[in-house]
Every structure is written in C-alpha cells, then in structure tokens.
Write a protein that binds this DNA or RNA. Structure first.
Length: 482
RNA sequence: GCGCCCAUAGCUCAACAGGUAGAGCAGGGGCCUCUUAAGCCCAAGGUUGGAGGUUCGAUUCCUCCUGGGCGCACCA
C-alpha cells in the first residue's frame, strides 16, 4: 500500500512537471561527454579548479544533498558517477530542479569544476528531465541486497550495485576477447541451429518444443557439436561457435538451464593441438582481463602459469589406488572398487557416472588444477577417436580448474562405421533417443581429421570474477514464476 | 528430488522468554549556498510472504502452501 502511495505521489509529481511545461519524456538529449569520458578527461584536477569548460552530460539521480539555496546531486550512467552542483543564482527554475528525486534521469549543462574538497562537479547552468521515475530506487547506501530481488529485477541490481555492473562489463570483454583471439588465429565464427530435430553432441535432457507449420517436434540444442563437424565435412578448416545451449536438468550454483558454450573445431589437428590452444586461450584471457595468472578462488590459490599439468586417468588411478581400471570397466567391478575405496555411489546410476565419481574422488586434490585429465576410457566417449595403439583409450582431455570441468576436447571421431556403432550402443536404455543418421552420412562423405574443444564460458567467467554462483554472472538467471 | 535455513515499511535492518511492531535511507512539511552515507526539527508510512492451527493473546510456537538461499543428488 505504501508503495502504491509512493507511486501515486510520483505520478502526481510528474503531472506537476508537465503542467509547468516540462517534457518529462523527451526523445533525445545531445551530450558532449559521457560521465566516464568526463572522469577520464578531468582526472587529477586540483581542488577548486574552475575549468571554464562547458559540457553536457546525463545520468540517473542517485543521491541528493540539498542545502537550501544550493544543492549537490550525484548522477550515474554507464557505471560511472559524477557530482552536479545546482544553486539558486545559477540554475534555472532551481526550485523545480531540487524537487527531482532519486531515479529520475536528467541532462545537465554547465561548467566543469572541482569543489574545495576536490570533487569533480558539473555546475548546472541548464538542465532537462530525460525520464521521470515513478518508483523509488533501492536504498542508496546498502543497495539492493535481497538475492531474489537482485535476480528478478536485475535492472535495479545493475544501477544500484556497481560491482554487479562491472561483472557484466567484464563478461562482455571476455566474450569479445575470445572472439578476437580466435579470429586472429584464422578461425571463423558460425551459427548453427539452436532448434534441432535430433538433439545431439552430448547426453543431457533437452527442452522440447513444437513447430506448428511443420507439425514437428523440435529440441533446443544441448550442444552444437554435430553441426559444427558437418561444417568440417563442408570444407571449413577452423570454425567456432560461441552461444547458448540448453539442458533440461537440475538448477544449482553451477548450472543454469541455458548456458554459454564455446566450441572450436580445427581440421588436420588432434587433441594435443587443442590442449595447446585451450591453454593459450585461457592464459591470454586471464592476462588480458584479470591482469594476472595467480589469484584466489573460494579462499584457495589458483596459478594458471603454463605449462599445465597433464594427468593420465588410468595411470593416476592405478598409482593412487593400486587398482587397474583399464579393461575392467564393468558395472560390477566399478561398484566393488568404489566400495573398497569407500566412495559413496548410487548403484543404479550409469556405469560412466560411477567411474566418474571414482576418478573425481581419488583425484580430488589434483582437480583443483589447472590440470588436463587425459586419455579417457573409450567406452563412454562416443564422439572421440581411439588411440592408434590403445583401443581402451580415446584421445580426449578435460581441463579442470578449481575442481570444475572447464573444457572438454578430443580428436574427433571421423570413422562413420565406428560412429554408427557408438551411437547405437549409446541409445540402448534411452527411450525417446534418436540416432542422427544424417550426421553419419555426412561422415561417410569424409570428414578431415580434426581436433574439437568445448569450453564452458560461464564457469570461466565465474573464475574471472571470483563468483561461486553461476547466477551472479548470468544477467537474467532462470527463476520460478512468482 | 531430499535435508537445513530465510521471508517484518519502497530499500537496509531491529523487536529479551508469546504481551499487540521500531530505526535508518527514500518520500512529505520546515531550516540551511562547497555537500558527498550532508546535518537539524516535525509529521506520515505495516493484513509481519499466504492459508490454517495452538493460545486470553502469535512477527515469535505448530502444520501446509508460495518464493528464495545453502548443501546433497541429478547434469558423461
């Protein structure tokens, strides 16, 4: 009810402004400089400097300090603040001006100067309302803290909490850097279907949708992989796609139903090349964006200085437990060994899950990384190529940093018969799972040997920003309808 | 999905052991021409997330519901 009153009051204030002849929603305001530009251009001025320089800038009113015949406001735009100074003897219609309130957008024009305390300030010699705010913004000092409200009304979070704003600027810079990095190495960016007839490239529950005109079920992609490899068949040598994939699974601090995945494919390469590329990319990214390779995450130190360690999965398991898993990957064996190692597992979960659980438990310390876990069992890596001298193992690695899988890569399987067999084996036990025979047909035309690399961009940004919840680095994370 | 925790004014937070909800900010009315969490005075603002229950009396205790957080499980 109180909110309603505030709302009504503000609507009334807007009406008063309109009656005084103010256009409260003008179409444009020509600024000479953004607040950011002003801060850069007039950095380090002495206290009490009057520049004589007149500028026009604009922003949202954040705080107001009225002192009778003179007032200071702070306005904010683009994540930057500047103080403005209005006074009876210099500001037109001063009385109306100081009745503006937090949340309102205004444009101001006047000399830029520094106060006696050295604060860069715009003298308001002319002003204009740019947009009247009808709802009170969150508190100026404590900001918006309620996590749910922050996610639901991210726009408030962004303009009130500067550190949040900065996270998303950093996210944007990260994406930009990745594109520049790959483009400069001759990769080209492509777009493949997000709506797929047969969801492939990973094992995960897809979102289902329906096309009316075609009377056809469609799925939101769980990965772009199979389409990108069709492009290798089509003659592209180096391609990547940076975009959303969707998985209809649980939501937690590490998982959002839609997430950003980078997939890179390079013809005539193998997983060793992708390992170098992956290391190069992430190291350059951290140097550029974070400015350092050594930092703390969740209170523990991470050092990304290359070269990163490589651990062969079967060897390491054998070294640590004395157990030879290679060639023994039956369900019974895995359950037995998990019990011996006192690792809690659910016996009815899939074999590869049990194996994964074992390897993640045994290698837990190493997975803080950065570390490349290499040579995965071929049994569950159905899109990867086997080693020439060892059928049990595929040419594949996963990159772990901070205990999380950040990247996954392999030498791509391009033998059509093997791919067909792997698909057929895999769909057993899954209802509603279809084989993408069109993909196999594409392979039959011939796909060059190639390395492929997938990087979870959200996880990477969590590392860059030091956040431990994926919702903190996604602008609008999915929440239940209220 | 399971377990634990949280929900009080627009925002940020109080309310001992069950006794009838209080402050700061924002907003309203005043004073104030270098303030910056500006300051001072006055007045206003609440179905304590929702529905039940226990009780003379519930923000407080109990049950269910809604939303959220954290952990576990799931997500190769």
């Amino acid at each position: 009810m109180a909110e309603d009153n505030i709302y009504k009051e503000r609507v009334e204030k807007r009406k008063n402004l309109i009656e005084k002849g103010y256009d409260v929603y003008p179409n444009k305001y020509e600024i000479t400089s953004s607040i950011k530009e002003l801060r850069e251009r007039f950095k380090g001025l002495e206290k009490g400097t009057y520049t004589g320089c007149k500028i026009k800038t604009a922003g949202r009113i954040i705080t107001i300090r009225r002192m009778g015949k003179a007032s200071f406001f702070t306005i904010r735009s683009g994540g930057n603040d500047i103080q403005i100074y209005a006074a009876m003897d210099i500001t037109p219609d001063y009385k109306t001006f100081i009745k503006l309130e937090p949340g309102d957008y205004i444009g101001v024009e006047g000399e830029i100067f520094t106060t006696k305390t050295g604060e860069l300030t715009v003298k308001v010699e002319s002003w204009q309302i740019l947009s009247k705010s009808l709802r009170p913004p969150p508190e100026k000092w404590h900001g918006l803290k309620d996590i749910e409200e922050r996610y639901r009304r991210r726009y408030l979070d962004l303009f009130v909490n500067k550190d949040v704003y900065e996270i998303f600027v950093l996210r944007s810079k990260t994406i930009d850097f990745i594109r520049r990095f790959l483009n400069s190495r001759g990769f080209i960016e492509v777009e493949t279907p997000m709506m797929q007839i047969i969801p492939g490239g990973a094992i995960a529950e897809p979102f289902k949708t329906y096309h009316n005109a075609l009377s056809m079920n469609l799925y939101l992609r769980i990965a772009p992989e199979l389409y990108l490899k069709r492009l290798l068949v089509g003659g592209f040598e180096k391609v990547y796609e940076l975009g959303k994939s969707f998985r209809n699974e649980g939501i937690d601090t590490k998982h959002n139903p839609e997430f950003t995945l980078l997939e890179i494919y390079s013809a005539y390469s193998n997983y060793e090349d992708m390992m170098r590329l992956c290391e190069d990319l992430i190291v350059s990214l951290f140097k550029e964006i974070k400015g350092e390779l050594s930092f703390e995450y969740e209170g523990k130190k991470i050092d990304l200085t290359p070269p990163w360690k490589r651990i062969s999965i079967f060897e390491e398991l054998k070294r640590k437990t004395g157990i030879e898993f290679k060639g023994n990957l039956t369900r019974d064996f895995l359950i037995l060994k998990a019990k011996e190692l006192k690792i809690e597992i659910e016996e009815d979960s899939e074999e590869h899950k049990i194996f994964e659980k074992i390897f993640e438990s045994v290698l837990e310390d190493e997975l803080w990384g950065p570390v490349f876990i290499v040579d995965f069992p071929s049994k569950w890596s159905i899109l990867a190529k086997k080693k020439k001298d060892d059928e049990e193992v595929v040419e594949r690695f996963e990159l772990f940093i901070a205990g999380e899988e950040i990247a996954n890569a392999y030498s791509e399987l391009n033998i059509p018969e093997d791919q067909r067999k792997n698909f057929e084996k895999q769909i057993r036990g899954y209802k509603e799972r279809e084989i993408d025979y069109d993909y196999i047909e594409a392979l039959e035309y011939g796909m060059p040997p190639a390395g492929g690399l997938g990087i979870g961009i959200d996880r990477l940004i969590m590392l860059l920003t030091g956040k431990n919840s994926i919702r903190e680095i996604i602008l609008f994370p999915l929440l239940r309808k209220k």
